[in-house]
Design a protein around this nucleic acid. Structure first.
Lengths: 188, 188
DNA sequence: GTCTATAACTTGATAGAC
DNA sequence: GTCTATCAAGTTATAGAC
């Protein structure tokens, strides 16, 4: 990928994050990469093409991550730990694009929207499968698998909104704290 | 509030939820309430006025809710339970406006944006205060208060995205399950 | 690959008749 | 209070010179 093209994608992600996809204009973007708006189109096909790349790149990262965890020969609880860590590390490594992935996918047009939702559904089903197995094995509390799935996903999906790497908390201790809270509970 | 005005606010919330504030047009809205676009302005002042009402009405519901919980003479753990239930019930009672409140507040213009953020900050500080007291008293695990605050908020803030009241799960059992997960942990 | 110019369209909101 | 007509500004994207 050309250097300018890469710059455009990166700045677009920032812009989409700050203003939202719809409110971010190609004029804004052009200004940030020091080009006239029309010149953007020598590098990219359309505004939505940028959104597509961001959404699907992130979706694939999650799908690949869960596949590799599924294959591992480890205890269910450790698979869940690995999944939660996967979410935290993806969110912290690339907070900008993960925000767009989380919040702006709905502006995808068909058929991309359907493809995206299918990928997401697939991911959630795999995640739920691991939870269900843990309940069956008796190592997890017998809580509705959907509730566990979405409570875990949600609690971890927005870490990047408030966690700043420069703070006193390291990523390691962040992971430990969240894992302790989710696995052992808030009560002493 | 006039009947038509009420209808406009309600449909606007739905529309903002479905498409996002920026992508939802006054023409869309007019069509839904069976008016010509210009006629909307006999009932409302502007598009943003609708957003303001949605955001501040919800924010005040949370602030009033936490004030009433603070005043109660009950154990810290019970205050936390009450807070989590507050979030769940607000989200389920009015899923449409809570989505707009959650996701679209950033399209508020100044000075409303600052007012809104101040309200939110105030709420979070109060919530964090309760958590800190629980840690001091020794009834909660010694986990960073920010991590607890945001993990709780996030896990519960998006319940309405996946919980459908018509499902087999009642609101009561939903609350019990989420509370059990957050307070006692996922592990058996 | 960048520019100027502009097409084709959508946006929120207003003026003024009825 | 609803309408028709319309404005002014903003949108993505393209055409074609250099």
């Amino acid at each position: 990928m050309g250097k300018k093209k890469e710059e455009i994608y990166q700045e677009a992600a920032k812009l989409f994050q700050e203003k939202g996809y719809k409110a971010a204009s190609m004029r804004d973007l052009a200004e940030r990469v020091e080009l006239k708006p029309s010149s953007l189109y020598s590098h990219i096909g359309s505004k939505e093409e940028i959104l597509q790349k961001i959404c699907f790149d992130n979706a694939l990262q999650f799908v690949e991550g869960i596949e590799s965890i599924e294959e591992k020969d480890i205890a269910i609880v450790d698979k869940l730990k690995a999944l939660i860590k996967l979410h935290i590390s993806i969110a912290i490594e690339n907070p900008t694009s993960i925000t767009v992935f989380n919040d702006e996918w709905r502006h995808l047009s068909l058929p991309y929207l359907d493809d995206f939702l299918a990928l997401r559904k697939d991911y959630e089903q795999r995640f739920k499968g691991i939870i269900k197995k843990g309940i069956e094995e008796g190592v997890l509390q017998n809580i509705d698998a959907n509730i566990v799935l979405y409570t875990l996903l949600n609690s971890v999906r927005w870490v990047h909104y408030w966690y700043k790497p420069k703070r006193s908390i390291t990523q390691e201790s962040l992971e430990e704290n969240i894992l302790s809270l989710l696995l052992n509970g808030l009560k002493k």
